[in-house]
Design a protein around this nucleic acid. Structure first.
Lengths: 182, 182
DNA sequence: ACAAAACATGTAATTTCAAACATGTTTTGT
DNA sequence: ACAAAACATGTTTGAAATTACATGTTTTGT
């Protein structure tokens, strides 16, 4: 489906950027729903240029360091917009290694499974706290159409998702603790 | 990390099965947190036999149809149990194509984005209804240690996750509807 | 008797992705 | 003056995963 293609096109459509910039973006808000290493990004950029969806011009930083600053072509913008408006079927449930462990947990000592759950819960709570800190910057919902709406929306989604993870872990913990007490 | 290896080992540890059976399992409860196509399963089974973690005996169905019924070896069981008890870091957030679209949604007509959201919401609600129907069979939480606890736990988790997806979509919809009304 | 669905097992080609390899420049802090 | 961190761009290797290719048997429903 070449989703990375559209992620890149979407980013460059908002603002001209280098491969390095794109790589950094994948480490920030985008981490909540997409990511790619630079070893995947650079070849994809080359491909997009070959396909006429992106162009670049070289800028010099300092004395000699070359930066390739990418811009979308009209063709690229059209391709992106077409993808963006597509009404797709919901994706299959994402894989989750800890849930796989949970599925097999009856093969484990309850006390061990409890430890695993507590460790997960601790990490999830820290992650949620981080998301909550980021969320503070929004006093209210930014209007749709402002460049902040997307950021807000996916951040709100990440919080809700993390809250659900925590809710589930707490439900499991309760069941295991009830078992141990008996 | 070879998670498929442990998914297969875990399944076969519970009960001897064929590659075809494993394939079917990935289409049922397991779909909520893991899956694999038969083209990935058969080579993995071969590898696990080579590594001495699984054994099989051939059974004949009808006149000539050969079935390979797999069983875990003691070594395989140990390997699985070791993996199962491992306390791991939470995984990076799963990729989500619709959230990527949402992130770029300001490039879209509000009415179009609204349609996309409504479509997602509709599909998510249907999925939740299905999970709820499955959930009915549990009058109460099965005791940990019973073979039903794992099933219950991941099903409960899938419901909670789906509820969160819906909550997020409704939040987005509300914001977009507010925009359109103005 | 026949067809369709389900059972059953594999391989080949391609895509996606992460980790490691590879090389250098520029800025910032001390 | 020096070192570390950040900037900047690539390639190579291999694992994980999907799609398509490939072939056949058995059961079920009509």
């Amino acid at each position: 489906m070449r989703t990375l293609k559209y992620a890149i096109l979407g980013l460059v459509n908002r603002k001209s950027m280098t491969g390095y910039d794109i790589s950094k973006e994948f480490g920030e808000e985008l981490i909540n729903f997409w990511s790619a290493k630079h070893s995947q990004i650079y070849p994809e950029l080359k491909k997009l240029v070959d396909e006429g969806l992106l162009e670049y011009k070289i800028e010099i930083t300092g004395d000699v360091l070359e930066k390739k600053v990418y811009t979308v072509t009209e063709k690229g913008r059209q391709d992106f917009l077409e993808w963006l408006a597509k009404d797709e079927k919901i994706e299959p449930t994402p894989k989750d290694q800890f849930r796989l462990r949970s599925y097999f947990s009856q093969a484990l000592e309850p006390a061990i499974y409890q430890k695993l759950l507590e460790s997960q819960l601790d990490q999830r709570k820290k992650k949620l706290a981080k998301l909550n800190r980021l969320f503070l910057q929004y006093q209210q919902v930014p209007p749709f159409g402002s460049d902040k709406f997307g950021d807000y929306s996916v951040l709100a989604g990440a919080r809700i998702r993390e809250e659900a993870n925590i809710k589930w872990l707490e439900l499991c913990l309760e069941a295991v603790r009830a078992e141990i007490k008996e």
